[in-house]
Design a protein around this nucleic acid. Structure first.
Lengths: 240, 240
DNA sequence: CTTACCCATCTTGTATGCAAGATTTGTCGT
DNA sequence: ACGACAAATCTTGCATACAAGATGGGTAAG
């Protein structure tokens, strides 16, 4: 996660670098990933970049616009609701299927909640985004099922992209409390309740989205120029 | 699905052909997929075959053995249990999250059960394998969530590979009855019960596996020579 | 000033070439 | 008859070359 741009960048897989960049909210939805640029960053030929992109496309993380380029996906409103629905199904099923919380599991979750609290106190928004997603991956890891972990990791990545598009202001404290409630239910051994809370939590987050927003193709430039984001109707066509 | 070997085979995607071959149990686990051979079958260059293989690998359907070749996966016993566990989680979560069975949904499911019955009557085992998997995909489709459909399709493909390795004799009627029970519960509007039945059903099928079997690397040759399958200790090392 | 059009440039799509490693087969020695 | 060794063959890994399409900028016409 350190020196991706180093010329010696040898063992860092392209796939991991992109996913990690998304999970930590360093890469925004719609970001263009030029085969040539990525290739030179990793000191490999386009071939390997393309292979990575194909895999990432299969995972729903990037998309190709024919002969135009590869872009980090910008989930549509419909896709966003699909992602949340899928997460509700899988995470609820996962929690409901559990019947025991191991000691190290409890420790892991508590450590995570502590980190969340620290990030809230520090006001580190990027780190918070990352942690909020990680929580659900931690839970998946408790199942010990790598298939589910993989699925939820990718869905989490898409969730982060979604929130970067549609979330005007996210209430970190609310999410944190949701996580706390889930963990409490798990500690009580009431996994049905935990499942219900997870569904509720995901509903809350989804409700907090503004799905009427269109992804802003100028976001990058806007940010570079330090302009306020998403002024509703600021096109030049004002001619009364 | 017809003329893959036709020289004019144009619009059939390689990915789909492989997956469809697995879902219909025409391709066995461990089958070698040579880049050159596939390329000439589809009248394309190795490049596109490799791209397809990369995607299929990401989906857990093929694996590459470095500098040796691409092979349809032969899930280990551990992977097999992971696949079934994941299916239990997702399918149970899916059913539990439903609250309504539409009319066309009911029709679709009934039509499917009728097909199952017909295949049992006809004794068409290959078709049965295909239908048994399709049932769960049909249910996923009821959710209208393409993400879940895709996930379950791939898990079903792996399930079929698993049963080809570890299932000595599969009790079609038992599975069929399991499906019938699930549909009945859904028609009663009792989706919690349907979820529980789905878990039970998947447990039954998983229990029916003989996970001590090792995948037989000589299966293809054995079948070609019309030899009895899986003679336990038939190595040449018999020297008393 | 606006609009239409064309060409230079940049992007991916696909094929091909070459190198490195694995496997197999044939041969030789015991 | 058996086992070891070596060369030939086949496999993927990766880079590169070239073609086709998309984009953007400049120019000329209205």
């Amino acid at each position: 996660m350190q020196d991706l741009s180093s010329q010696e960048s040898a063992q860092v897989s392209i796939d991991e670098a992109v996913v990690s960049g998304i999970l930590s909210a360093r890469i925004r939805p719609g970001t263009r990933l030029s085969e040539n640029e990525v290739a030179s960053l990793f000191n490999v030929s386009r071939t390997r970049v393309r292979e990575a992109m194909m895999r990432l496309e299969q995972r729903g993380i990037v998309k190709v616009s024919p002969r135009r380029g590869w872009f980090v996906v910008e989930p549509s409103a419909e896709e966003a609701t699909d992602v949340y629905a899928a997460r509700r199904v899988i995470e609820a099923g996962l929690l409901a299927s559990m019947n025991h919380l191991s000691d190290i599991g409890r420790e892991t979750l508590h450590a995570h909640l502590t980190e969340e609290k620290a990030a809230i106190a520090a006001g580190d928004r990027q780190r918070l985004t990352c942690l909020m997603g990680d929580f659900h991956i931690r839970i998946a890891e408790l199942s010990g099922n790598p298939i589910l972990v993989e699925i939820l990791r990718d869905l989490t990545a898409r969730t982060i992209l979604i929130s970067l598009i549609y979330q005007s202001d996210f209430h970190a404290m609310q999410s944190h409390l949701g996580h706390c409630r889930i963990v409490t239910a798990m500690e009580e051994g009431d996994f049905e309740k935990a499942a219900a809370l997870a569904v509720e939590h995901l509903d809350e987050v989804e409700t907090g989205l503004d799905l009427t927003r269109r992804p802003d193709p100028l976001a990058d430039l806007r940010r570079s120029l330090s302009l306020p984001p998403q002024v509703p109707n600021a096109t030049h066509k004002t001619k009364p």
